[in-house]
Design a protein around this nucleic acid. Structure first.
Length: 293
DNA sequence: AGGTGGACCCGAACGC
DNA sequence: TGCGTTCGGGTCCACC
């Protein structure tokens, strides 16, 4: 599923091929993509726009035009963007849109489950729309544990549900939420407001490390995710818990357990992510390492 | 008012 | 083998 690392990888690959280019012709053949707006009208509005910048906020890919308008692309679960020379891309029953650029190349959008969305916004609408839905960028240089702590304050929801909320922190989805909690050694069902400051710090670090790791591998391809050149990411090979039920924990050897949190499949290590607070001796956070198995 | 669960999708995996 | 059922996941929205 495209989460921050996947969307950022797409952004980086797309920026050099889109910036400075104009949309010459746009075909949208799935009304769901632009709902509730008419796809034919949206396509017509897009024609003639020249791309100033390919941006990202959370899981939104933001194509900013010189006019000040912006196209917000959300890949949801199975969306992907491909770029290639015109006519070179093979037929695809799941292709939902094609953008012809002014340099003889095409950008196509494919989406098996059709959850993805394209939303064309006027200049004055963009910031408000995005900021209402998306919190701070976790990979920004100035993102601090303090910011995460403020968002978690007073929230009774399980910590995993809280970090899946895009307003808590931008771009964390089901996969990287589990990976971050494993790194921080925090049980996914712990009430968000119950974390102490050391745990918030560990989670802040866990989120950043999990996302950075995904980004270094150009995202994770479980099935549908692709880079714009058709390539695959490889972060799935680095997962510590996601999808690894029954396998031994990399840290302590205990079999990874699977439960359900906030309606999502959730994998964690029952030994190094205990629900009850670890009893700490006089010294703050001594560590496990060889907990009993 | 914050939290939860269903709806939206469709291909793959599963069960009989 | 074949066919019906279940699963999953991001976001919105109705409902508690």
């Amino acid at each position: 599923m495209p989460e921050l690392p996947e969307v950022e990888t797409v952004r980086r690959r797309l920026a050099p091929v889109l910036e400075g280019r104009s949309f010459v012709d746009v075909q949208i053949n799935d009304a769901r993509l632009t709902r509730p707006f008419d796809p034919v009208e949206v396509a017509r509005e897009l024609e003639g726009e020249r791309v100033a910048l390919v941006d990202r906020r959370g899981k939104y890919l933001i194509v900013r035009f010189e006019s000040g308008r912006a196209l917000l692309v959300h890949l949801r679960m199975t969306g992907s963007v491909l770029h290639g020379r015109r006519g070179q891309l093979p037929d695809d029953p799941h292709r939902r849109a094609v953008v012809r650029l002014d340099d003889e190349s095409d950008v196509t959008y494919r989406d098996v489950r059709r959850f993805g969305t394209w939303l064309l916004l006027e200049p004055a609408e963009v910031d408000g729309y995005v900021d209402a839905r998306v919190g701070r960028e976790p990979l920004a240089a100035d993102y601090r544990a303090k910011h995460l702590g403020e968002e978690l304050e007073g929230r009774r929801a399980p910590i995993k549900a809280a970090i899946l909320d895009q307003r808590t922190v931008a771009g964390v989805g089901n996969i990287y939420a589990d990976e971050a909690l494993w790194r921080a050694q925090i049980h996914p069902l712990r009430p968000a407001s119950g974390l102490d400051s050391a745990e918030v710090k560990a989670l802040h670090r866990g989120i950043r490390q999990a996302l950075q790791g995904g980004l270094r591998r150009q995202g994770s391809t479980l099935r549908d995710y692709r880079l714009p050149d058709g390539g695959t990411g490889s972060a799935q090979h680095e997962f510590k818990v996601y999808g690894r039920g029954g396998e031994p924990c990399d840290r302590c050897g205990t079999p990874i357990d699977k439960i359900r949190v906030a309606g999502r499949g959730t994998w964690y290590c029952p030994s190094c992510q205990p629900y009850a607070a670890r009893r700490s001796s006089s010294r703050p956070s001594r560590s496990r390492r060889h907990s009993s198995v």
